[in-house]
Amino acid sequence: MTHPLVFDGHNDVLLKIFRAGGISAVDGFVSGRDGDIDLPRAKTAGFGGGFFAIYVPSPIDMEFKYAQMTKPTYDLPLPDQIGRAEALPVVLEQAAILLRLQEIGALTICKTAAEIRTCLQSGQLAAIMHIEGAEAIDANLHALDVLYRAGLRSIGPVWSRPTIFGEGVPFRFPSDGDIGGGLTEHGLNLVERCNELGIMIDLSHLNEAGFWDVAKHSNAPLVATHSNCNAISPHSRNLTNKQLAAIKQSNGMVGLNFAVAFLREDGQMLPEVPLETMLRHLDHLIESLGEDHVGLGSDFDGAVVPEQIGDIAGLPKLRVAMVKHGYNEALIKKLCHENWLRVLERIWGA
């Protein structure tokens, strides 16, 4: 089952291409590459596009991180803050990778919901330029203005580690996101400028104090592109029912994160996760937010995902599971892409 097409809230394919050689490695996206997403599998799986994250990696021992996250409890320290001078070249190179993918016809960088609809109708892969962690943005927000003109339409003020704009949550289980302080003065200015430009603010990774600061100061719908339910999986990265209620009140939405540690009740980074667990999170999100405010935010190429999914080639299995679970055609279409288009139209104004 490859339809309706999936428009996805988060992937890290640009980071993977960056690490594989940068601009010189983009052809692999067209012909086939190691990893979760490429053009051939996108076509066969009914993957219509999504938010392509630009992310500056920290020097993390991934083997150690994943080993810790298989324990019954864990609290991984946050990486050090990254300076703008270090972050900016990485952001520019990953933005250039996305622009190069557009240049060779692999995708279209979309700046309006109408452009996404056109891509979905024509079979062209639709991409939103998104930044996960605003380390490259200066306090005066000049870089934000420049990146906006290059196509940036979505930004997360933090990726867990702190920035000059706010604080994120460590990978802690069990826990909620009530860890650390809220947005800084620079963070409040970032929210205001994003509202002026029509840049979506992503609440994923932001701690709870920062979440409530955005809720108080932003005039746009609240959106978490790739987050799950703390009531089911009590992980610091997941949203509490109180946060979900605020998102609903703002007419925002949440994209279901496929990362197994945020799906499992035990919070462990183990791939043995049945599709029923994903559906349980979807049920809770729909019950909490309403069926017009829930979508998918896979975290492909950036996380361990359920073994039954594997990569984007597994998306048809999720659609089939939705049908068997009792979701009707209209609801599945909303979850797969219509709700993302709705909220983006409200935020972007077109």
Rank of each mutant, 00 (worst) to 15 (best):
G180Y: 03
T163P: 02
G168D: 08
W212E: 12
Y74R: 08
L141S: 08
V214C: 12
A127E: 06
G83C: 10
L15F: 13
G83M: 13
F173P: 02
H337W: 06
P77D: 13
L279A: 10
F7P: 13
H281T: 01
I131K: 01
I232L: 15
L197I: 15
L15R: 12
K324D: 15
G255Q: 06
R346F: 01
D80C: 04
I179V: 15
A87Q: 05
W340E: 02
L120A: 05
L285A: 05
S218C: 13
I23K: 14
P59I: 08
Y66R: 15
E196C: 11
G28C: 09
D138L: 03
Y55D: 12
I179L: 14
A231H: 04
R264L: 10
L147N: 02
A106Q: 03
D301A: 10
P221K: 02
Q268Y: 03
G50I: 12
V223Y: 03
V6N: 04
S58W: 06
D12N: 11
A87M: 10
A330E: 15
Q121T: 07
V273D: 04
S227Q: 04
M69P: 00
L344F: 15
P59E: 11
G310A: 08
F51G: 02
M62I: 05
D34K: 07
G297Y: 00
R100G: 03
T163S: 12
R33C: 12
Y74A: 06
I247E: 03
V169I: 15
H205F: 08
V305K: 13
R161G: 08
H142T: 14
N228C: 01
L183H: 09
I201A: 11
S122N: 14
G32D: 03
L125Y: 03
A114Y: 01
D301T: 07
A215F: 12
I23C: 03
A87N: 10
L270N: 13
G22F: 09
G168W: 12
V169Y: 00
D27T: 04
S233H: 03
D138Q: 01
Q68V: 07
I247D: 02
D8I: 06
T2L: 14
N189S: 15
H205I: 09
Y74W: 10
S233V: 11
F52N: 04
I232Q: 09
R172W: 12
D301Y: 05
R117V: 15
P4L: 06
D266W: 02
A330P: 00
K324W: 01
T112Q: 02
D80F: 08
Q308S: 12
I37R: 03
E63Y: 06
I104T: 11
E63V: 11
L183V: 06
M200R: 10
N257P: 00
R149C: 10
V13C: 04
K317F: 08
D61C: 07
V305E: 03
S175C: 11
L39F: 05
E132Q: 13
I128H: 07
L263E: 03
M269D: 09
G267N: 00
A134S: 14
Y55L: 08
I37H: 02
E132L: 09
A143E: 15
G182V: 11
A85T: 05
E167H: 14
D27K: 14
F7M: 10
L190Y: 11
